[in-house]
């Protein structure tokens, strides 16, 4: 695909997430080609970086943590049903991934083998995908041809690579207490302090913890 950038944002969640990325990635020093999918807060998925792999990256303060997975991990079954989504003729397909079964609608009218989150490998863009219990549901929101087609090229040295377990641990720590992580990242030249009123930080942390507990339903179950 190379000269085309696809952006997916998950519906129903706050879009605070994707805005961070659009705001920041403006001046990346590009090198390697990859497709990029944005999903959750701070989370960017690069498909095809490195070649035949998925890079899952998550930005914490100013570090981009990254782990790699196989790009071709989806065994799709094309199903006979079809319907029209936003004017495109879409075909149904199914797969299973990380402990959930998914049904997807893709269109070969947009010949991009991409989709939301890590999903890819169908002969056309995935317009909708949801797991069979409907806990996760992605819908295409917008698709537009970018005028000056920015090539997404990435440098491995812009990321800190580790294994999936360690990256997910750091992400969870950050989600539970972003303020503590922020403070740990302070340097003499650049110090960020948050001026909470007494009690406000603790309240926020408790709310976050409860929200995360309620959300204890990760997309990847295994």
């Amino acid at each position: 695909m190379g000269d085309q950038l696809s952006i997916f944002a998950s519906q129903g969640r706050t879009l605070r997430d994707s805005l961070k990325i659009t705001a920041r990635d403006r001046n990346i020093d590009f090198k390697e080609h990859a497709r990029r999918t944005k999903t959750d807060f701070g989370e960017v998925i690069y498909k095809g970086f490195p070649e035949n792999n998925i890079s899952y990256s998550y930005e914490i303060i100013r570090d981009k943590l990254r782990y790699e997975e196989d790009l071709n991990q989806f065994a799709w079954k094309i199903l006979p049903e079809s319907k029209t989504i936003q004017g495109y003729k879409a075909q149904k397909a199914s797969t299973s991934f990380a402990g959930r079964n998914y049904l997807a609608w893709f269109t070969s009218e947009i010949p991009i083998d991409d989709g939301p989150y890590k999903f890819n490998g169908l002969p056309g863009l995935i317009l909708e995908i949801s797991d069979t219990e409907n806990h996760y549901n992605y819908k295409l929101q917008s698709f537009e041809k970018l005028e000056d087609s920015p090539t997404v090229r990435i440098k491995a040295s812009n990321f800190l690579k580790s294994d999936k377990k360690e990256v997910l641990e750091r992400i969870m720590e950050y989600k539970l207490n972003p303020f503590a992580v922020l403070e740990r990242n302070n340097t003499p030249e650049k110090t960020i302090k948050i001026g909470f009123k007494e009690g406000q930080k603790e309240k926020l942390l408790r709310e976050t913890r409860e929200k995360l507990k309620k959300q204890n339903n990760p997309i990847e179950l295994e």
Partner: peptide, 10 residues
């Protein structure tokens, strides 16, 4: 390509 609707956000 056909235009696709963008929904409102917070």
């Amino acid at each position: 390509l056909k235009e696709v609707l963008v929904e409102t956000k917070i």
